[in-house]
Write a protein that binds this DNA or RNA. Structure first.
Ligand SMILES: [Mn+2]
Ligand SMILES: [Mn+2]
Ligand SMILES: [Mn+2]
Ligand SMILES: [Mn+2]
Lengths: 234, 234
DNA sequence: TTTAAGATTTAGACTATACTAAATTTTGTG
DNA sequence: CACAAAATTTAGTATAGTCTAAATCTTAAA
Protein backbone atom coordinates (compact mmCIF):
# COMPACT_ATOMS: atom_id res chain seq x y z
CA UNK A 1 0.00 0.00 0.00
CA UNK A 2 1.34 3.38 -0.94
CA UNK A 3 -0.45 5.38 1.71
CA UNK A 4 -0.49 4.10 5.29
CA UNK A 5 -3.94 3.19 6.50
CA UNK A 6 -3.83 5.61 9.37
CA UNK A 7 -3.47 8.49 6.96
CA UNK A 8 -6.63 7.99 4.97
CA UNK A 9 -8.49 10.79 6.69
CA UNK A 10 -6.06 13.56 6.03
CA UNK A 11 -7.35 16.65 4.26
CA UNK A 12 -4.98 17.68 1.51
CA UNK A 13 -5.17 20.55 -0.89
CA UNK A 14 -5.85 17.94 -3.57
CA UNK A 15 -9.01 16.77 -1.86
CA UNK A 16 -10.59 20.19 -1.95
CA UNK A 17 -12.12 20.10 -5.40
CA UNK A 18 -14.55 22.70 -6.73
CA UNK A 19 -17.38 20.30 -5.98
CA UNK A 20 -16.25 19.89 -2.38
CA UNK A 21 -16.06 23.65 -2.05
CA UNK A 22 -19.60 24.06 -3.31
CA UNK A 23 -20.90 21.49 -0.83
CA UNK A 24 -19.19 23.27 2.04
CA UNK A 25 -20.50 26.61 0.89
CA UNK A 26 -24.03 25.20 0.57
CA UNK A 27 -23.88 23.73 4.06
CA UNK A 28 -22.61 27.02 5.42
CA UNK A 29 -25.32 29.01 3.74
CA UNK A 30 -28.18 26.66 4.66
CA UNK A 31 -27.01 26.71 8.27
CA UNK A 32 -27.46 30.48 8.35
CA UNK A 33 -31.22 29.97 8.43
CA UNK A 34 -30.86 28.32 11.83
CA UNK A 35 -32.19 24.98 10.74
CA UNK A 36 -30.44 21.63 10.69
CA UNK A 37 -28.85 21.02 7.31
CA UNK A 38 -30.42 17.95 5.75
CA UNK A 39 -29.71 15.84 2.70
CA UNK A 40 -32.81 16.97 0.81
CA UNK A 41 -32.04 20.68 1.18
CA UNK A 42 -28.51 20.16 -0.04
CA UNK A 43 -29.75 18.17 -3.02
CA UNK A 44 -32.03 21.02 -4.03
CA UNK A 45 -29.39 23.68 -3.49
CA UNK A 46 -26.70 21.82 -5.39
CA UNK A 47 -28.91 20.49 -8.14
CA UNK A 48 -28.12 16.86 -7.57
CA UNK A 49 -30.13 13.88 -6.35
CA UNK A 50 -30.22 12.89 -2.68
CA UNK A 51 -28.07 9.74 -3.07
CA UNK A 52 -25.36 11.90 -4.57
CA UNK A 53 -25.44 14.08 -1.49
CA UNK A 54 -25.24 11.10 0.85
CA UNK A 55 -22.18 9.83 -0.97
CA UNK A 56 -20.47 13.20 -0.78
CA UNK A 57 -21.33 13.67 2.88
CA UNK A 58 -19.40 10.51 3.67
CA UNK A 59 -16.43 11.82 1.76
CA UNK A 60 -16.58 15.18 3.55
CA UNK A 61 -16.84 13.47 6.92
CA UNK A 62 -13.80 11.33 6.09
CA UNK A 63 -11.92 14.55 5.33
CA UNK A 64 -13.01 15.97 8.70
CA UNK A 65 -14.76 18.84 6.98
CA UNK A 66 -18.19 18.03 8.43
CA UNK A 67 -19.73 16.06 11.27
CA UNK A 68 -22.25 13.69 9.76
CA UNK A 69 -24.96 11.78 11.63
CA UNK A 70 -26.72 9.52 9.13
CA UNK A 71 -30.41 10.40 8.84
CA UNK A 72 -29.92 13.42 11.12
CA UNK A 73 -28.04 16.05 9.16
CA UNK A 74 -24.62 17.63 9.09
CA UNK A 75 -22.62 20.52 10.42
CA UNK A 76 -19.33 22.02 9.40
CA UNK A 77 -16.21 21.39 11.43
CA UNK A 78 -13.89 24.29 12.14
CA UNK A 79 -11.79 23.49 9.08
CA UNK A 80 -14.86 22.94 6.92
CA UNK A 81 -16.14 26.35 7.92
CA UNK A 82 -12.81 28.02 7.20
CA UNK A 83 -12.85 26.64 3.67
CA UNK A 84 -16.47 27.66 3.17
CA UNK A 85 -15.66 31.19 4.30
CA UNK A 86 -12.67 31.41 2.01
CA UNK A 87 -14.80 30.43 -0.97
CA UNK A 88 -17.49 32.91 0.04
CA UNK A 89 -14.77 35.57 0.27
CA UNK A 90 -13.67 34.75 -3.25
CA UNK A 91 -17.24 34.83 -4.49
CA UNK A 92 -18.07 38.22 -3.03
CA UNK A 93 -14.78 39.84 -3.94
CA UNK A 94 -15.22 38.68 -7.51
CA UNK A 95 -18.79 40.00 -7.62
CA UNK A 96 -17.72 43.40 -6.41
CA UNK A 97 -14.71 43.46 -8.70
CA UNK A 98 -16.80 42.72 -11.76
CA UNK A 99 -19.11 45.59 -10.88
CA UNK A 100 -16.44 48.10 -9.93
CA UNK A 101 -13.75 47.34 -12.46
CA UNK A 102 -15.55 45.88 -15.44
CA UNK A 103 -18.94 47.50 -15.51
CA UNK A 104 -21.09 44.47 -14.74
CA UNK A 105 -24.44 45.11 -13.11
CA UNK A 106 -25.40 43.41 -9.87
CA UNK A 107 -27.71 40.95 -11.56
CA UNK A 108 -24.99 39.64 -13.88
CA UNK A 109 -22.27 38.77 -11.41
CA UNK A 110 -23.54 35.78 -9.48
CA UNK A 111 -23.12 33.09 -12.11
CA UNK A 112 -19.69 34.32 -13.12
CA UNK A 113 -18.53 34.39 -9.48
CA UNK A 114 -20.02 30.98 -8.78
CA UNK A 115 -17.50 29.49 -11.19
CA UNK A 116 -14.46 31.72 -10.75
CA UNK A 117 -14.54 31.49 -6.94
CA UNK A 118 -12.91 28.06 -7.27
CA UNK A 119 -10.11 29.02 -9.59
CA UNK A 120 -8.51 32.31 -8.61
CA UNK A 121 -5.13 32.03 -6.92
CA UNK A 122 -4.40 33.53 -3.55
CA UNK A 123 -2.30 36.09 -5.35
CA UNK A 124 -5.17 37.17 -7.60
CA UNK A 125 -7.51 37.29 -4.63
CA UNK A 126 -5.05 39.61 -2.89
CA UNK A 127 -4.71 41.91 -5.90
CA UNK A 128 -8.46 42.15 -6.29
CA UNK A 129 -8.98 42.90 -2.59
CA UNK A 130 -6.24 45.50 -2.81
CA UNK A 131 -7.72 47.13 -5.90
CA UNK A 132 -11.06 47.38 -4.12
CA UNK A 133 -9.53 48.79 -0.93
CA UNK A 134 -10.26 45.71 1.16
CA UNK A 135 -14.02 46.09 1.02
CA UNK A 136 -16.38 44.67 3.62
CA UNK A 137 -19.48 44.17 1.49
CA UNK A 138 -20.32 42.98 -2.01
CA UNK A 139 -22.76 44.63 -4.45
CA UNK A 140 -25.74 42.97 -2.75
CA UNK A 141 -24.62 44.14 0.68
CA UNK A 142 -23.44 40.64 1.60
CA UNK A 143 -20.53 40.79 4.05
CA UNK A 144 -17.16 39.70 2.71
CA UNK A 145 -15.34 37.36 5.11
CA UNK A 146 -11.97 38.67 6.23
CA UNK A 147 -8.73 36.89 5.42
CA UNK A 148 -8.66 35.45 8.93
CA UNK A 149 -12.07 33.88 8.46
CA UNK A 150 -14.06 36.34 10.54
CA UNK A 151 -17.14 38.11 9.26
CA UNK A 152 -17.96 41.83 9.46
CA UNK A 153 -20.83 42.06 11.94
CA UNK A 154 -24.18 42.91 10.48
CA UNK A 155 -27.11 44.01 12.64
CA UNK A 156 -30.05 44.51 10.37
CA UNK A 157 -33.72 43.66 10.28
CA UNK A 158 -35.74 42.69 7.32
CA UNK A 159 -37.97 45.27 5.73
CA UNK A 160 -40.91 42.98 6.47
CA UNK A 161 -40.43 43.48 10.20
CA UNK A 162 -40.89 47.24 10.15
CA UNK A 163 -44.22 48.91 10.66
CA UNK A 164 -45.25 52.23 9.13
CA UNK A 165 -44.47 53.75 12.52
CA UNK A 166 -40.84 53.50 11.55
CA UNK A 167 -39.18 56.51 10.03
CA UNK A 168 -36.70 56.32 7.22
CA UNK A 169 -34.51 53.26 6.90
CA UNK A 170 -31.39 52.54 4.91
CA UNK A 171 -31.17 49.44 2.75
CA UNK A 172 -28.07 47.48 3.71
CA UNK A 173 -28.49 44.14 2.00
CA UNK A 174 -30.59 42.43 -0.65
CA UNK A 175 -30.72 38.68 -0.13
CA UNK A 176 -31.79 37.67 -3.57
CA UNK A 177 -29.80 36.50 -6.52
CA UNK A 178 -32.50 36.13 -9.10
CA UNK A 179 -31.36 38.32 -12.01
CA UNK A 180 -34.86 39.42 -13.01
CA UNK A 181 -35.84 40.48 -9.51
CA UNK A 182 -32.49 42.22 -9.03
CA UNK A 183 -33.01 44.20 -12.20
CA UNK A 184 -36.47 45.17 -11.01
CA UNK A 185 -35.14 46.27 -7.64
CA UNK A 186 -32.38 48.43 -9.05
CA UNK A 187 -34.89 49.94 -11.47
CA UNK A 188 -37.02 51.17 -8.60
CA UNK A 189 -33.87 52.32 -6.80
CA UNK A 190 -33.97 49.71 -4.07
CA UNK A 191 -30.27 48.95 -3.73
CA UNK A 192 -27.84 48.90 -0.79
CA UNK A 193 -27.27 52.38 0.67
CA UNK A 194 -30.51 53.79 -0.66
CA UNK A 195 -32.89 55.41 1.79
CA UNK A 196 -36.56 54.48 1.87
CA UNK A 197 -39.63 55.28 3.94
CA UNK A 198 -42.17 52.70 5.03
CA UNK A 199 -45.62 53.94 4.17
CA UNK A 200 -47.93 51.04 4.91
CA UNK A 201 -47.93 47.36 5.83
CA UNK A 202 -51.06 45.41 4.95
CA UNK A 203 -52.25 42.80 7.43
CA UNK A 204 -52.41 39.04 6.78
CA UNK A 205 -48.87 39.05 5.47
CA UNK A 206 -49.85 41.53 2.81
CA UNK A 207 -47.59 43.86 0.83
CA UNK A 208 -45.41 46.56 2.32
CA UNK A 209 -45.66 49.94 0.68
CA UNK A 210 -42.49 51.97 0.63
CA UNK A 211 -41.50 55.31 -0.73
CA UNK A 212 -38.28 55.81 -2.63
CA UNK A 213 -37.56 59.39 -3.61
CA UNK A 214 -41.19 60.50 -4.05
CA UNK A 215 -42.39 57.25 -5.66
CA UNK A 216 -44.58 54.82 -3.72
CA UNK A 217 -44.19 51.12 -4.43
CA UNK A 218 -45.93 48.09 -2.94
CA UNK A 219 -43.61 45.18 -2.27
CA UNK A 220 -44.70 41.60 -1.79
CA UNK A 221 -44.07 40.57 1.81
CA UNK A 222 -41.95 37.60 0.70
CA UNK A 223 -39.70 39.92 -1.23
CA UNK A 224 -39.65 42.42 1.66
CA UNK A 225 -38.23 39.65 3.87
CA UNK A 226 -35.17 39.54 1.63
CA UNK A 227 -34.45 43.23 2.03
CA UNK A 228 -32.37 44.04 5.10
CA UNK A 229 -32.52 47.58 6.42
CA UNK A 230 -31.14 49.67 9.25
CA UNK A 231 -32.80 52.56 11.02
CA UNK A 232 -31.19 55.85 10.16
CA UNK A 233 -29.33 57.27 13.10
CA UNK A 234 -30.17 60.88 13.82
CA UNK B 1 -31.04 3.57 -25.20
CA UNK B 2 -31.53 7.23 -24.50
CA UNK B 3 -29.31 8.60 -27.24
CA UNK B 4 -29.64 7.19 -30.73
CA UNK B 5 -26.58 5.35 -31.94
CA UNK B 6 -26.15 7.58 -34.92
CA UNK B 7 -25.70 10.58 -32.68
CA UNK B 8 -22.70 9.43 -30.71
CA UNK B 9 -20.25 11.60 -32.56
CA UNK B 10 -21.88 14.94 -31.95
CA UNK B 11 -19.82 17.66 -30.32
CA UNK B 12 -21.78 19.40 -27.62
CA UNK B 13 -20.81 22.20 -25.32
CA UNK B 14 -20.84 19.60 -22.55
CA UNK B 15 -18.13 17.56 -24.22
CA UNK B 16 -15.71 20.45 -24.27
CA UNK B 17 -14.21 20.05 -20.81
CA UNK B 18 -11.17 21.97 -19.57
CA UNK B 19 -9.11 18.87 -20.24
CA UNK B 20 -10.33 18.67 -23.82
CA UNK B 21 -9.53 22.35 -24.26
CA UNK B 22 -5.99 21.83 -23.00
CA UNK B 23 -5.43 18.94 -25.42
CA UNK B 24 -6.64 21.02 -28.34
CA UNK B 25 -4.47 23.93 -27.29
CA UNK B 26 -1.46 21.64 -26.92
CA UNK B 27 -2.00 20.13 -30.37
CA UNK B 28 -2.37 23.61 -31.82
CA UNK B 29 0.78 24.86 -30.19
CA UNK B 30 2.89 21.81 -31.04
CA UNK B 31 1.76 22.05 -34.64
CA UNK B 32 3.19 25.57 -34.85
CA UNK B 33 6.69 24.07 -34.89
CA UNK B 34 5.87 22.48 -38.25
CA UNK B 35 6.31 18.92 -37.06
CA UNK B 36 3.74 16.17 -36.90
CA UNK B 37 2.05 16.12 -33.51
CA UNK B 38 2.76 12.79 -31.85
CA UNK B 39 1.55 11.04 -28.73
CA UNK B 40 4.84 11.39 -26.89
CA UNK B 41 5.08 15.15 -27.37
CA UNK B 42 1.54 15.61 -26.13
CA UNK B 43 2.24 13.46 -23.09
CA UNK B 44 5.22 15.63 -22.17
CA UNK B 45 3.35 18.88 -22.79
CA UNK B 46 0.29 17.88 -20.84
CA UNK B 47 2.09 16.09 -18.06
CA UNK B 48 0.38 12.77 -18.51
CA UNK B 49 1.53 9.31 -19.63
CA UNK B 50 1.32 8.23 -23.27
CA UNK B 51 -1.58 5.77 -22.78
CA UNK B 52 -3.62 8.61 -21.36
CA UNK B 53 -2.99 10.61 -24.51
CA UNK B 54 -3.98 7.71 -26.75
CA UNK B 55 -7.27 7.35 -24.91
CA UNK B 56 -8.04 11.05 -25.19
CA UNK B 57 -7.09 11.16 -28.88
CA UNK B 58 -9.79 8.59 -29.57
CA UNK B 59 -12.30 10.70 -27.71
CA UNK B 60 -11.29 13.84 -29.59
CA UNK B 61 -11.51 12.01 -32.90
CA UNK B 62 -15.02 10.80 -31.99
CA UNK B 63 -15.97 14.41 -31.34
CA UNK B 64 -14.59 15.38 -34.76
CA UNK B 65 -12.13 17.75 -33.14
CA UNK B 66 -9.04 16.03 -34.56
CA UNK B 67 -8.07 13.63 -37.31
CA UNK B 68 -6.26 10.73 -35.73
CA UNK B 69 -4.14 8.13 -37.53
CA UNK B 70 -3.02 5.54 -34.99
CA UNK B 71 0.77 5.41 -34.71
CA UNK B 72 1.10 8.41 -37.06
CA UNK B 73 -0.03 11.49 -35.19
CA UNK B 74 -2.93 13.90 -35.19
CA UNK B 75 -4.10 17.18 -36.61
CA UNK B 76 -6.89 19.51 -35.65
CA UNK B 77 -10.08 19.68 -37.67
CA UNK B 78 -11.55 23.07 -38.45
CA UNK B 79 -13.78 22.96 -35.38
CA UNK B 80 -10.94 21.69 -33.20
CA UNK B 81 -8.80 24.59 -34.31
CA UNK B 82 -11.58 27.10 -33.66
CA UNK B 83 -11.87 25.89 -30.09
CA UNK B 84 -8.11 25.92 -29.62
CA UNK B 85 -7.96 29.49 -30.86
CA UNK B 86 -10.76 30.58 -28.60
CA UNK B 87 -8.95 29.17 -25.57
CA UNK B 88 -5.71 30.81 -26.68
CA UNK B 89 -7.61 34.08 -27.00
CA UNK B 90 -8.88 33.72 -23.46
CA UNK B 91 -5.41 32.89 -22.21
CA UNK B 92 -3.71 35.86 -23.78
CA UNK B 93 -6.44 38.35 -22.95
CA UNK B 94 -6.29 37.25 -19.33
CA UNK B 95 -2.51 37.56 -19.25
CA UNK B 96 -2.64 41.07 -20.60
CA UNK B 97 -5.50 42.02 -18.33
CA UNK B 98 -3.67 40.85 -15.23
CA UNK B 99 -0.67 42.95 -16.21
CA UNK B 100 -2.58 46.06 -17.26
CA UNK B 101 -5.36 46.15 -14.71
CA UNK B 102 -4.00 44.37 -11.66
CA UNK B 103 -0.29 45.02 -11.63
CA UNK B 104 0.96 41.50 -12.29
CA UNK B 105 4.35 41.15 -13.92
CA UNK B 106 4.81 39.15 -17.09
CA UNK B 107 6.38 36.21 -15.29
CA UNK B 108 3.39 35.77 -12.96
CA UNK B 109 0.54 35.58 -15.41
CA UNK B 110 0.96 32.30 -17.22
CA UNK B 111 -0.15 29.91 -14.49
CA UNK B 112 -3.13 32.06 -13.56
CA UNK B 113 -4.25 32.30 -17.19
CA UNK B 114 -3.73 28.59 -17.76
CA UNK B 115 -6.53 27.92 -15.31
CA UNK B 116 -8.87 30.86 -15.86
CA UNK B 117 -8.88 30.47 -19.65
CA UNK B 118 -11.34 27.60 -19.20
CA UNK B 119 -13.78 29.37 -16.93
CA UNK B 120 -14.45 32.93 -18.04
CA UNK B 121 -17.80 33.50 -19.73
CA UNK B 122 -18.13 35.03 -23.16
CA UNK B 123 -19.45 38.13 -21.45
CA UNK B 124 -16.40 38.48 -19.24
CA UNK B 125 -14.12 37.85 -22.20
CA UNK B 126 -15.87 40.69 -24.03
CA UNK B 127 -15.58 43.12 -21.11
CA UNK B 128 -11.90 42.35 -20.72
CA UNK B 129 -11.21 42.80 -24.42
CA UNK B 130 -13.15 46.03 -24.32
CA UNK B 131 -11.28 47.32 -21.27
CA UNK B 132 -8.01 46.60 -23.05
CA UNK B 133 -9.12 48.25 -26.29
CA UNK B 134 -9.26 45.01 -28.28
CA UNK B 135 -5.52 44.38 -28.11
CA UNK B 136 -3.63 42.29 -30.66
CA UNK B 137 -0.76 41.05 -28.52
CA UNK B 138 -0.26 39.80 -24.97
CA UNK B 139 2.55 40.82 -22.57
CA UNK B 140 4.96 38.37 -24.20
CA UNK B 141 4.19 39.65 -27.67
CA UNK B 142 2.10 36.58 -28.47
CA UNK B 143 -0.68 37.41 -30.95
CA UNK B 144 -4.21 37.33 -29.58
CA UNK B 145 -6.62 35.49 -31.90
CA UNK B 146 -9.52 37.62 -33.05
CA UNK B 147 -13.12 36.79 -32.20
CA UNK B 148 -13.58 35.31 -35.67
CA UNK B 149 -10.71 32.89 -35.12
CA UNK B 150 -8.16 34.64 -37.27
CA UNK B 151 -4.70 35.57 -36.05
CA UNK B 152 -2.92 38.91 -36.39
CA UNK B 153 -0.11 38.24 -38.86
CA UNK B 154 3.38 38.21 -37.42
CA UNK B 155 6.46 38.37 -39.60
CA UNK B 156 9.44 38.09 -37.35
CA UNK B 157 12.74 36.27 -37.23
CA UNK B 158 14.44 34.90 -34.20
CA UNK B 159 17.30 36.82 -32.72
CA UNK B 160 19.47 33.77 -33.34
CA UNK B 161 19.13 34.23 -37.09
CA UNK B 162 20.60 37.71 -37.21
CA UNK B 163 24.25 38.37 -37.79
CA UNK B 164 26.19 41.32 -36.36
CA UNK B 165 25.81 42.86 -39.80
CA UNK B 166 22.26 43.69 -38.84
CA UNK B 167 21.55 47.08 -37.45
CA UNK B 168 19.13 47.72 -34.67
CA UNK B 169 16.18 45.41 -34.23
CA UNK B 170 12.98 45.65 -32.22
CA UNK B 171 11.94 42.85 -29.93
CA UNK B 172 8.41 41.80 -30.82
CA UNK B 173 7.91 38.55 -28.97
CA UNK B 174 9.49 36.43 -26.25
CA UNK B 175 8.59 32.77 -26.63
CA UNK B 176 9.37 31.64 -23.13
CA UNK B 177 7.17 31.17 -20.15
CA UNK B 178 9.69 30.17 -17.54
CA UNK B 179 9.20 32.72 -14.74
CA UNK B 180 12.87 32.88 -13.75
CA UNK B 181 14.07 33.48 -17.30
CA UNK B 182 11.32 36.03 -17.87
CA UNK B 183 12.39 37.94 -14.78
CA UNK B 184 15.98 37.87 -16.00
CA UNK B 185 14.96 39.14 -19.41
CA UNK B 186 12.92 42.02 -18.07
CA UNK B 187 15.77 42.90 -15.71
CA UNK B 188 18.14 43.35 -18.65
CA UNK B 189 15.43 45.23 -20.50
CA UNK B 190 14.78 42.61 -23.11
CA UNK B 191 11.00 42.89 -23.45
CA UNK B 192 8.62 43.39 -26.38
CA UNK B 193 9.00 46.83 -28.01
CA UNK B 194 12.53 47.34 -26.70
CA UNK B 195 15.25 48.12 -29.22
CA UNK B 196 18.53 46.21 -29.25
CA UNK B 197 21.68 46.01 -31.34
CA UNK B 198 23.40 42.77 -32.30
CA UNK B 199 27.05 43.03 -31.49
CA UNK B 200 28.46 39.56 -32.09
CA UNK B 201 27.45 36.00 -32.87
CA UNK B 202 29.89 33.29 -31.88
CA UNK B 203 30.30 30.33 -34.23
CA UNK B 204 29.43 26.73 -33.43
CA UNK B 205 26.05 27.79 -32.15
CA UNK B 206 27.68 30.00 -29.57
CA UNK B 207 26.21 32.96 -27.71
CA UNK B 208 24.84 36.09 -29.33
CA UNK B 209 26.03 39.34 -27.85
CA UNK B 210 23.55 42.18 -27.88
CA UNK B 211 23.54 45.72 -26.67
CA UNK B 212 20.58 47.16 -24.80
CA UNK B 213 20.88 50.85 -23.96
CA UNK B 214 24.68 50.92 -23.56
CA UNK B 215 24.97 47.54 -21.80
CA UNK B 216 26.39 44.50 -23.61
CA UNK B 217 24.99 41.11 -22.76
CA UNK B 218 25.81 37.65 -24.11
CA UNK B 219 22.78 35.49 -24.69
CA UNK B 220 22.84 31.73 -25.00
CA UNK B 221 21.92 30.75 -28.56
CA UNK B 222 19.06 28.55 -27.33
CA UNK B 223 17.57 31.49 -25.53
CA UNK B 224 18.17 33.77 -28.52
CA UNK B 225 16.03 31.42 -30.61
CA UNK B 226 13.07 32.27 -28.40
CA UNK B 227 13.39 36.00 -28.95
CA UNK B 228 11.59 37.23 -32.05
CA UNK B 229 12.71 40.51 -33.52
CA UNK B 230 11.95 42.80 -36.45
CA UNK B 231 14.33 45.02 -38.32
CA UNK B 232 13.71 48.66 -37.62
CA UNK B 233 12.28 50.43 -40.61
CA UNK B 234 14.03 53.69 -41.46
C1' DT C 1 -49.21 2.36 19.49
C1' DT C 2 -49.32 1.08 14.93
C1' DT C 3 -48.36 2.14 10.36
C1' DA C 4 -47.92 4.56 6.10
C1' DA C 5 -45.63 8.47 3.98
C1' DG C 6 -41.57 10.82 3.53
C1' DA C 7 -36.66 11.16 3.96
C1' DT C 8 -32.49 8.97 3.58
C1' DT C 9 -29.22 5.50 2.61
C1' DT C 10 -27.58 1.36 0.08
C1' DA C 11 -26.67 -1.10 -4.14
C1' DG C 12 -25.26 -1.14 -8.52
C1' DA C 13 -24.01 1.32 -12.67
C1' DC C 14 -21.88 4.98 -15.71
C1' DT C 15 -18.55 8.68 -17.50
C1' DA C 16 -14.28 11.24 -17.55
C1' DT C 17 -9.63 11.06 -16.85
C1' DA C 18 -5.77 9.04 -15.11
C1' DC C 19 -2.33 5.07 -14.23
C1' DT C 20 0.84 0.54 -14.93
C1' DA C 21 2.07 -3.53 -17.42
C1' DA C 22 1.93 -5.93 -21.57
C1' DA C 23 1.36 -6.27 -26.52
C1' DT C 24 2.06 -4.33 -30.95
C1' DT C 25 3.77 -1.34 -34.54
C1' DT C 26 7.26 1.54 -36.49
C1' DT C 27 11.90 2.85 -37.25
C1' DG C 28 16.73 3.13 -37.41
C1' DT C 29 21.00 0.40 -37.52
C1' DG C 30 24.05 -3.16 -38.78
C1' DC D 1 16.69 -6.42 -45.20
C1' DA D 2 16.47 -8.18 -40.55
C1' DC D 3 15.75 -7.13 -36.05
C1' DA D 4 16.28 -4.60 -31.76
C1' DA D 5 15.01 -0.23 -29.75
C1' DA D 6 11.69 3.22 -29.45
C1' DA D 7 7.07 4.70 -29.82
C1' DT D 8 2.47 3.67 -29.41
C1' DT D 9 -1.61 1.21 -28.34
C1' DT D 10 -4.26 -2.29 -25.69
C1' DA D 11 -5.78 -4.25 -21.46
C1' DG D 12 -6.98 -3.83 -17.08
C1' DT D 13 -7.53 -0.88 -12.96
C1' DA D 14 -8.53 3.40 -10.08
C1' DT D 15 -10.93 7.68 -8.39
C1' DA D 16 -14.34 11.48 -8.39
C1' DG D 17 -18.81 12.50 -9.04
C1' DT D 18 -23.09 11.44 -10.78
C1' DC D 19 -27.50 8.58 -11.59
C1' DT D 20 -31.78 5.13 -10.80
C1' DA D 21 -34.04 1.59 -8.23
C1' DA D 22 -34.52 -0.65 -4.03
C1' DA D 23 -34.04 -0.99 0.91
C1' DT D 24 -34.30 1.14 5.34
C1' DC D 25 -35.06 4.54 8.82
C1' DT D 26 -37.85 8.36 10.89
C1' DT D 27 -41.93 10.66 11.84
C1' DA D 28 -46.54 12.08 11.99
C1' DA D 29 -51.30 10.68 11.76
C1' DA D 30 -54.84 7.52 12.73
MN1 LIG E 1 -19.24 27.49 -7.06
MN1 LIG F 1 -23.59 38.62 -3.51
MN1 LIG G 1 -5.40 25.37 -19.40
MN1 LIG H 1 1.73 34.78 -23.29
Amino acid sequence: MTVAENEINKTTKQNITPVVEDYLKAIYSLRQTGETVRTAALAVRLNVKPPTVTAMLKTLADLNLIRYEPYRGVELTESGEQIALEVVRHHRLIELYLVEALGFSWDEVHDEAEVLEHFISEKLEARIADYLGNPTHDPHGDPIPNLDGTLPETTANTLADFSPAAREVRVVRVRDQNPDRLRYLSEIGLVPQSTIKIVAAEPFDGPITIQISKKKIALDRQLARLILVEEMKG
